[in-house]
């Protein structure tokens, strides 16, 4: 299965290359290094969120509240910036991550301690978090001119030709890779999703592990909330509305099994990049937004079909034993 995931990552990489090739025939400028970097930068928020979602899905849960968490944290960051322009940006980033983790922890506690199915919990908190944005902002926008230059600058600061937003995404990919492969908690995420009963007997607390998955997803969504608001220099109730579906789609395309236990950081990242390329390329080659949705949707279904086929066992080996019996 590990070889399979590896090959699935290879397939996905190949698919992305073919896609880029196709686009290049119609619009060569798309595949210049500068533009590819821009596409990566544009996809960075999706990559960060997909990594968080991957962890949650690995543990047999799902986090539908990521986009709402992002929007709420983003609004709070913007309002802090407006109310107290003197607060340094790194403090705001810390607040964003901390607040995201707290919102994720709320999801986690409801799942862990009350045993409510995660899809119900996060469907509820998704609405609650959006509602809170409305309450604290009175439905008003926080616009670019109200934000301090420092607040807006961070995602754009260029370093070695790439904006900080891209560097942050790269850093998170690396941290997540190490965390998932080299820490006991990372291993526990896989174990809990792969066989919760066995995990219990092994001494892993299933509920607590799921709790930490939600905290991780929330923290990443919180960070993305600040990045999103500062990058687009606007905060309002409906930012990133429906974005949670893109995040889940990126995971599914990346080979993360919805039933839990199977997945990788690389898969989530490639799934996000695949979606990002489609989203950025189709307008350039003059394909209508409706086709964009249809193509994204088809990619999801094809990915699931591939996953299901790969996951299907070849049937149990009984025959040999019967022969031995006879």
């Amino acid at each position: 299965m590990k070889q399979l995931i590896k090959s699935r990552e290879a397939i996905l990489t190949a698919a992305i290359v073919v896609l880029l090739g196709l686009i290049a025939t119609r619009f060569p400028a798309f595949v210049t290094p500068g533009n590819l970097a821009a596409v990566f930068n544009d996809t960075s928020p999706l990559i960060i969120l997909a990594i968080g979602q991957m962890i949650v899905i690995l543990t047999k849960c799902i986090d539908l509240s990521v986009a709402a968490t992002l929007a709420l944290t983003g609004m709070v960051c913007a309002m802090i910036n407006v109310a107290a322009p003197g607060v340094p940006v790194f403090v705001i980033v810390a607040v964003a991550i901390g607040m995201g983790m707290a919102l994720g922890a709320f999801n986690g506690v409801l799942t862990w301690k009350l045993g409510i199915p995660p899809i119900v919990v996060t469907l509820g908190t998704m609405t609650i978090y959006r509602g809170i944005i409305f309450l604290i902002s009175d439905g008003k926008w926080v616009n670019s001119h109200e934000m301090t230059p420092a607040f807006k600058a961070l995602p754009r600061v260029a370093f070695l030709g790439l904006p900080a937003l891209s560097w942050l995404a790269i850093a998170i990919i690396l941290i997540a890779f190490v965390a998932m492969t080299r820490t006991t908690l990372g291993r526990a995420f896989f174990a809990v999703g792969g066989n919760p009963h066995a995990a219990v007997y092994t001494g892993i607390n299933v509920g607590r592990t799921q709790f930490w998955a939600f905290v991780a997803s929330g923290g990443l969504a919180g960070l993305t909330g600040y990045l999103w608001v500062s990058r687009y220099a606007v905060a309002y109730v409906d930012i990133a509305l429906g974005f949670e579906l893109d995040v889940v789609a990126a995971c599914v395309i990346g080979g993360i099994a919805i039933s839990g236990g199977i997945g990788s950081v690389g898969g989530a990242v490639l799934g996000a990049i695949f979606l990002g390329v489609i989203k950025n390329a189709l307008p350039v080659v003059n394909i209508s937004p409706f086709w964009q949705m249809a193509i994204s949707g088809s990619a999801i279904i094809i990915a699931i079909a591939v996953n299901t086929r790969a996951g299907r066992s070849k049937g149990r080996v009984i025959l040999k034993k019967t022969e031995a019996e006879a």
Binding site: R187, F190, A191, A198, T202, G203, I262
Partner: peptide
């Protein structure tokens, strides 16, 4: 079957899990 091994994980990770 239900309570023993974590099937998607490789052998070495199952052995060391506890």
């Amino acid at each position: 079957g239900l309570q023993g091994a974590i099937r998607p994980l490789p052998i070495f990770q199952n052995v060391t899990l506890a």
